[in-house]
Amino acid sequence: MALLSIRDLMAHFETPRGTVYAVDGVNLDIGSGETVGLVGESGCGKSTLGKAILRLIEPNFGSIVLDSVDITHLKRRQLARHRHKVQMIFQDPYASLNPRATVGRIIEEPLMVNGWGSDRERKERVAWLLEKVGLPTDSLKRHPHEYSGGQRQRIGIARAIALNPKIVICDEAVSALDVSIRAQIINLLTDLRDELGLSYLFISHDLSVVEHIADRVCVMYLGKIVEIAERERLWAMPLHPYTQILMAAVPVLDPKIARERKKIIPRDELPSPLNPPGGCRFHTRCPYAQPKCRDEEPPLRPLQGRQSVACHLVTEQADGSIAYPTMAAEAAPKNDVRGAPA
C-alpha cells in the first residue's frame, strides 16, 4: 500500500469567467521514502494538486488516502490529527514566512499548534531543527528579513519537518533561489530525505532539478497527468509528445549540443484551463495530432516497465515493443527496440 494514494482527484475553481478545471482527474501513488517529481507548464495545476493533498483547497471529487486513512472528507478536528503527516515547503522564501514573527517562533508554531511536548521539549526540538537545516543557533530571536533567500528557505524547511512528517510537498521549493544557493538547498533536501526517510512530491518546472532529485516523474498538462515513469526511463525514452517537447526545451550546458540540437517547437501556447480543448487536451499544440485526437480523450494507460502514457499514438505492439511518435521519423511512428522485453 502506497503512503499516499490519490484517485480521480478533481479540484475546480468557480470564477466569474467560468469554471477553471485546475486539477481534473488525477491518479497518483507515492511510496514511503520515494521522491516523485511533478513537472508541467505554469497554470497546469501543479500547485493546486499539492494544496488539494493538504486539503488547503477542497477537492470536488476523488479521494486522498494518506497512510491508510481516507482524509478526503475528514472534518477539521479529525483532519488535525493527520495534518502533521503531510507538510509543505513553498516557493517564495519571502512570502512564506510571517515577517512579524521571530525565526524561533516560526519554527515552534507547528509544534505549539499541535500540542507537541512541553515548553522545554519544544525549545530543544527547535534548536535541533535549526542545526539540521544549517542555521546558526543565534537565529531564534531574529526576524526573517535579516536573512537571505536561501537561509529563509532553510527556515521554511525547518518549519515543514518540525512535526516529523512522512511526506513533504515541495512546491517550487528551489525555483526562486540563485544557482549557487539552489545547490545548497537541493543537497539539504536530499540529505534530510535520506536521514529522516521522507517522501517528497517535488513540484518544479525545472526538469534538470527534477531529474537530479526524483525517483519517478509525472508530467502534467492542463489538469491531467499525461505521462508517469521512472526517472531513467523517462529521460531515456519520453513517449508522450508533450514530454518530448519539454525535454527538448531544457537548456543544456554544452554550447555545441545546444546549437545543433533540433528543437521541437510546439505549435501554439498553453490553452486556457477555462475551457480545455476536447479530445486529447494537447491536440491543439501537438505536432503529431490525428483526427482521432480531436474527438477522443486518450486514457492514461500503463505500459510495461512502470510507465504510463495518455496518447493515442503510443501503443504496445504484439511483440511487446512500444510504438510512439518521434521527430526522427516524421511520417510513421517508430518502433522502439529498447521497449522490448529482454
Partner: peptide, 8 residues
C-alpha cells in the same frame, strides 16, 4: 516564462 516558451 515556461521552458517551452522560453525556448521559443
Amino acid at each position: 516564462l515556461d521552458v517551452t516558451i522560453q525556448a521559443q
